[in-house]
Simulated assay, not measured.
Amino acid sequence: MKQFGYQHIKCIDNVPEFERSLKEVYFDVIVLDMNMGNSDLTGGLNMLEVVENNHITSAVIILTANDTVTNCRQAFLQGAWDYISKNWEGDTFEMVHDSIQNALQKLNRWGNVDNDRWFNENKTDLMQKRPGQWIAILNQDIIESAYTKDELIKKLRGLSLPAVATTIEHVLPQVHSPNLQNEHLMEIINEDENQTVDFKKTACRTMNPKATNPKEPKAIQKIVKEVASFMNSKVGGAVIIGVRDKDHEIVGVELDYVVAVKQKSRQNWDGYESFIRQILDDNLTSNKPLEYKIYRHELAGKMVCRIAVPPAKSEVYHNDIKKTTCFSVRDGSRSKTLNVRETVSYVLANHSANS
């Protein structure tokens, strides 16, 4: 394969050495022969299983002189990138070379899917443990981290890493962090609503142009419900007001000022913050003090309100539009109100030790 310009090649002819190498060396591409260390011609598939079980994210090419439909199907089911028969017409090494190049081009263009999936699945936990850090992920594991991307890249240059198998991601600070910077909030706004983030266009205005009363009680109660849901979650979250949830457009809360506060001299941020605090204190109940903070952020020339909500130390109940006491929790990207039986089960499982 050196004739095609590959410089770092490691040849292995037995299974134990292969397994050791997976722990010691990072590979962009692994080519496995079906006859490798196995008399029944399934050694390549066995080694592919080892690769899969160890979360190795290298592209794997199966090479064989005894190709069967069954083996080909099994190889792809186990995550092989390609399956090449030595019996096909043409130069086998050229076929392998073309396959390697296609694999590298795909990884360069789309990134490493397994690493990306691991990052998304563990994002909430990472925000708690590594807020604000840049991390390098290889084989679904963090191999290096730093507080700037340039610093991380410098660290990676000193390591013998594969060209494309390493994924670099930025772990945003927790959305309810008191030190959340505007640039980080913009990154959060550019993403979709999730377990820890909810967008609201307004806290109190009606969207009906024909309405005689500009204040909308349902909008107020939605804010209350979202805050209660984050309080009852394990990780907390934030309600961001002044952002349209459909397209993430920043609309600001300035139009809320006039509707929220009757006194003209108080139709400003201070009056608005007092209004938000009042509706929360009037509609949330718990046997322990409520903990939340209200922050303002100027983004795109408009004021955005962030209600930062850490997880509560005890269960939190809220009033609905009819002043009925309810219990809600965060369920993915939405809040869900539980019935009595569900509430009892949830409280016993999550808050009984703190009550």
Rank of each mutant, 00 (worst) to 15 (best):
residue 4 F to C: 13
residue 4 F to S: 09
residue 8 H to A: 15
residue 9 I to M: 12
residue 13 D to R: 06
residue 14 N to M: 06
residue 14 N to L: 08
residue 15 V to R: 11
residue 18 F to W: 08
residue 21 S to F: 08
residue 32 L to M: 08
residue 34 M to S: 10
residue 37 G to L: 05
residue 48 L to Q: 04
residue 52 E to D: 08
residue 55 H to T: 06
residue 57 T to C: 09
residue 60 V to R: 00
residue 65 A to P: 04
residue 66 N to C: 06
residue 69 V to F: 13
residue 70 T to G: 02
residue 71 N to G: 14
residue 72 C to M: 12
residue 72 C to Y: 03
residue 79 G to K: 01
residue 80 A to K: 00
residue 80 A to I: 02
residue 83 Y to C: 02
residue 84 I to K: 01
residue 89 E to M: 14
residue 91 D to S: 07
residue 94 E to H: 09
residue 101 Q to P: 07
residue 101 Q to K: 11
residue 105 Q to E: 15
residue 107 L to N: 00
residue 111 G to S: 05
residue 112 N to V: 14
residue 115 N to G: 07
residue 126 L to W: 04
residue 141 D to F: 05
residue 142 I to G: 02
residue 158 G to P: 04
residue 165 A to H: 03
residue 166 T to L: 10
residue 167 T to L: 14
residue 169 E to M: 15
residue 174 Q to A: 10
residue 177 S to H: 07
residue 179 N to M: 05
residue 179 N to T: 15
residue 180 L to P: 04
residue 181 Q to T: 10
residue 182 N to R: 08
residue 186 M to K: 15
residue 187 E to P: 03
residue 191 E to P: 02
residue 200 K to S: 10
residue 208 N to Y: 08
residue 210 K to A: 13
residue 210 K to V: 09
residue 211 A to Y: 09
residue 212 T to V: 04
residue 214 P to R: 06
residue 214 P to E: 11
residue 215 K to V: 09
residue 215 K to M: 10
residue 216 E to T: 02
residue 218 K to V: 12
residue 219 A to S: 10
residue 221 Q to C: 08
residue 221 Q to E: 06
residue 230 F to E: 01
residue 234 K to A: 12
residue 235 V to T: 15
residue 237 G to E: 02
residue 237 G to F: 06
residue 238 A to L: 05
residue 239 V to H: 02
residue 240 I to Q: 01
residue 252 G to W: 00
residue 259 V to S: 07
residue 262 K to E: 11
residue 268 N to L: 04
residue 270 D to P: 08
residue 276 I to W: 02
residue 281 D to L: 11
residue 284 L to A: 13
residue 285 T to V: 12
residue 289 P to D: 05
residue 293 K to F: 07
residue 300 A to M: 14
residue 308 A to K: 01
residue 315 E to N: 11
residue 315 E to C: 13
residue 326 C to L: 10
residue 327 F to W: 10
residue 327 F to A: 02
residue 333 S to Q: 05
residue 342 E to R: 06
residue 343 T to N: 04
residue 345 S to G: 06
residue 348 L to D: 13
residue 352 S to Q: 13
residue 355 S to R: 15
